[in-house]
Design a protein around this nucleic acid. Structure first.
Ligand SMILES: [Zn+2]
Length: 767
DNA sequence: CGTTTTTGACCTGCGC
DNA sequence: GCGCAGGTCAAAAACG
């Protein structure tokens, strides 16, 4: 073959794909935003925390009974707990509403706890934080009717789960109301609440106001720092003056947060405003609230463990049956031993899924157990992989997700029991294959290629595949590992920037697509099992489909974290969805809500196929026909609003920009360096921000904003360091030019394409 | 010269 | 068992 220049080749990554050829069933859920009573406004808020504590972002939208957008806000705030995020989101919304003259506000949050803590007197005795209630009441009680609503607890946890990943994005808080009349007024307002700001991370540069309707967004950037800068803010008491204002509530909460080491600036101010004893009480309250939450998680974990145990028993039965078949007569004894160990392992695995905080402990336990016996060695890998794939990476950042996660796997195992070990084993094999490398790398020292009885599967990629009964246990796990998260986004770039470093290790012609599919693996860490496939949609080549598999086993930069969490949580969702119809619904519901709290959306969940896949569709597909054959395994979340899609590139840029902030890179003005994402982001910054702002201005829709946020999570459209990227970026034309830039190279590639075909042929011939 | 990409060969699962 | 298709490997080439 003719080897093409790297750039050309890279561009050729644009792969088309029908996406998911196999599919079976899907569930479509429609979630509606219901209007408030006449005369009321409705505030939908949410806070998402990537980790608990961890960086968190908030968002909210205020609409009237007609559903008309009144105002909205969203953005990255700083570091804190999930609860803090929720509280912040709520209080910010309240404040905004108040400033907009709202008299009757219906608040809808996904955090029951947050609402209760803030406003439910009846819970005061349960949460000393209830003392905050007076703040809230004082602040709004007389002039503002507040009504709270939260989804069912189940829904809530799920929603939180998803949001904490999906909604998290590295952009700054923009709490400005975007109502046109407000612009002039806002500028001079005191920023009552300074962002908690991890100082180094959040330079006040170039922040974007998604809700700004004017074109002078860039100029207004400076004001965006003001988290709360409502038009009337000048009328408000100065920050220091009062506990009467919502700000106070906010601030107070902020201060209270145990983890908010970064929040000094505002914290101190606000604290000063609070009576000393009250401050202490508040802090205590927060801590207690957290404890409560943890307790609940523990409960959930216990339940999960029970379920796991049950599943195990089922599997064990199945295993016994298989053994009776005589396939593994020689190893019966070993198997038994294994089983015992496996049981523990399984339980632990699930626990890990359920609670990241416990992960380490559990893992250690596993290791100990396994190390104890020869047979156990291979088992050790199992839990780890499982953990990693499902949640491992998240252990560091998103405990908040854990509660939901815990139950995820339950469903997967039953099928195994019914239909057979083969499926299970197969999955295991695949797992081995896909994740084996990692397991190998990480634990090879400890493990030998496994005795026949063990699940040797993980030792190497090339592990022999056989349907051993033991594998049945892992079937479920396999399912977990197999879960994929596919992101559809319009992008000219050959690859979306998701904060990770990838190495291409293969390219093939996909069956139904003229465009090749590229395979990448994460190179941020030696043994990272994460892989992704990049393809262009056959129907619409402007759509880039990136499919992630596995979880990172290493620390990630915030940017990458966002993606990783999104994928891992999506995967979890998917898996949990597979468990039961209820879960599936729930998940769909929460996903939908998370993504589009204010508008209808569709979520498709399916986990039946070989690769259960969650698809985040960030392209608004004008014509539904575009994806006629929706694959069974897919979980699709189309964003109704085109703006979201159109914003992607900008958003990506934005994300990058913020990421750079996070990473402490200088964002200011290096426009040239391709070497770092930050630099790249910085380079495109102005343009990007302007573009995004404009786009938003064009259609200020919260949904769009959310979508944008999510898209940012997903990664920058900005090409990384790839030379290809440069070519792609060169296209200059915004979204329109798909292939042109790339085209030249692509065309070359096309010649390659033939090559690609060759590959395919070679395969055939090879066989 | 080290790293990344390219790309034919291989491997594995699956349907027939 | 065969052929197909999806993935992965790894030597060679291309980059920087
Ligand atoms: Zn990784």
């Amino acid at each position: 073959m003719v080897s093409l220049p790297r750039a050309a080749a890279a561009e050729y990554h644009h792969l088309a794909t029908n996406g998911f050829p196999h599919s079976a069933r899907s569930i479509i859920l429609n979630v509606k935003w219901s209007p408030p009573l006449e005369g009321w406004w409705k505030l939908n808020t949410d806070g998402a925390c990537s980790g608990n504590p961890g960086p968190f972002a908030i968002g909210g939208i205020i609409r009237n009974q007609l559903g008309n957008w009144i105002s909205g806000y969203s953005g990255y705030v700083g570091t804190g707990t999930a609860l803090k995020a929720e509280l912040w989101a709520i209080s910010s919304g309240i404040k905004l509403a108040s400033n907009l003259g709202c008299k009757h506000l219906w608040i809808e949050s996904d955090s029951l706890l947050a609402c209760n803590l803030l406003f439910d007197h009846s819970l005061s005795h349960l949460h000393s934080i209830g003392i905050l209630s007076p703040f809230a009441r004082q602040a709004f009680g007389n002039s503002l009717d507040l009504s709270f609503h939260t989804p069912s607890e189940k829904e809530t946890s799920a929603l939180i789960n998803l949001l904490s990943t999906a909604f998290w994005s590295p952009f700054q808080v923009n709490l400005n109301s975007y109502a046109p009349h407000e612009h002039e007024e806002q500028e001079d307002n005191d920023s009552i609440i300074a962002p908690p700001a991890p100082s180094p991370i959040r330079p006040h540069i170039g922040e974007r106001d998604f809700f700004n309707t004017t074109t002078n967004i860039i100029n207004d950037d400076h004001r965006n720092y003001k988290l709360l800068a409502p038009s009337n803010s000048h009328d408000l008491p100065s920050p220091s003056s009062s506990s009467l204002f919502p700000f106070k509530v906010n601030t107070g909460l902020n201060l209270l947060t145990t983890n908010s080491s970064n929040d000094h600036s505002m914290v101190e101010e606000d604290l000063s405003a609070l009576p000393g004893n009250r401050k202490g009480i508040c802090e205590l309250a927060i801590v207690e609230a957290e404890l409560e939450r943890i307790k609940m998680e523990n409960l959930q974990l216990k339940n999960t463990l029970d379920e796991v145990t049950r599943d195990y028993n089922r599997l064990e039965m199945h295993l016994v049956n298989l053994m009776n078949d005589g396939k593994r007569e020689d190893h019966n004894n070993e198997d038994e031993i294994m089983e015992e160990e496996e049981e523990e392992v399984l339980g632990e695995k699930k626990l890990q899924i359920g609670n990241n905080n416990n992960t380490n402990t559990n893992t250690n336990t596993n290791n100990n157990n396994n190390n104890g016996g020869d047979n156990g060695e291979s088992l050790v890998l199992v839990p780890r992989q499982f953990m990693d794939l499902g949640l491992a990476d998240t252990s560091d950042h998103e405990p908040s997700l854990s509660s939901t996660v815990g139950r995820s796997r339950e469903g997967s195992s039953p099928p195994a029991a019914a239909s057979g070990v083969e499926v299970a084993s197969r999955k295991n094999d695949e797992h081995k294959k896909e994740f084996g490398i990692r397991g190998m790398e990480r634990e090879q020292d400890n493990h030998t290629p496994a005795s026949p009885t063990q699940p040797p599967n993980f030792l190497t990629n090339k592990i022999p595949r056989f349907n051993s009964p033991e594998n049945a246990d892992q079937a479920a796990e396999a399912t977990m590992r197999k879960a994929r998260v596919s992101v559809r986004a319009r992008s000219e770039a050959p690859m979306i920037t998701d904060g990770c470093q990838w190495r291409k290790y293969g390219q093939k012609m996909a069956k139904g697509n003229p465009c090749p599919r590229a395979y990448y693996r994460c190179t941020m860490a030696g043994g990272c099992p994460v892989r992704k496939q990049v393809q262009r949609c056959a129907e619409d080549r402007t759509i880039l489909i990136t499919t992630y598999e596995g979880n990172h086993n290493h620390p990630l930069p915030p940017t990458a974290m966002a993606m990783a969490q999104t994928t891992s949580s999506a995967a979890r969702m998917l898996l949990s969805g597979s468990m039961s119809s209820t879960d599936g619904l729930m998940n769909g519901n929460f996903l939908t809500r998370a993504l589009l709290p204010c508008s209808s959306s569709m979520a498709t969940i399916s986990a039946s196929a070989p690769f259960p896949t969650v698809t985040l569709d960030l392209t608004q597909s004008p014509n539904p026909l575009q994806f006629p054959q929706r694959q069974p395994n897919q979980f699709q979340i189309p964003f109704p609003n085109s703006p979201a899609a159109s914003l992607l590139p900008q958003i990506f840029g934005h994300a990058l920009y913020n990421q750079s902030k996070f990473s402490g890179l200088h964002v200011s003005q290096q426009s040239g360096e391709p070497s770092t994402a930050a630099a790249a982001a910085a380079g495109g910054m102005d343009t990007v921000s302007a573009a995004s702002a404009a786009a938003i201005a064009a259609d200020p829709n919260f949904t769009a904003a959310l979508a944008a946020a999510i898209s940012s999570i997903i990664g920058g459209a900005q090409p990384n360091n790839n030379s290809v990227a440069s070519s792609g970026s060169g296209s200059g034309g915004g979204g329109g030019n798909n292939n042109n830039n790339v085209t030249s190279s692509n065309n070359n590639n096309n010649s390659n394409t033939s090559g690609g075909n060759k590959i395919g042929n070679s395969n055939f011939s090879g066989n």
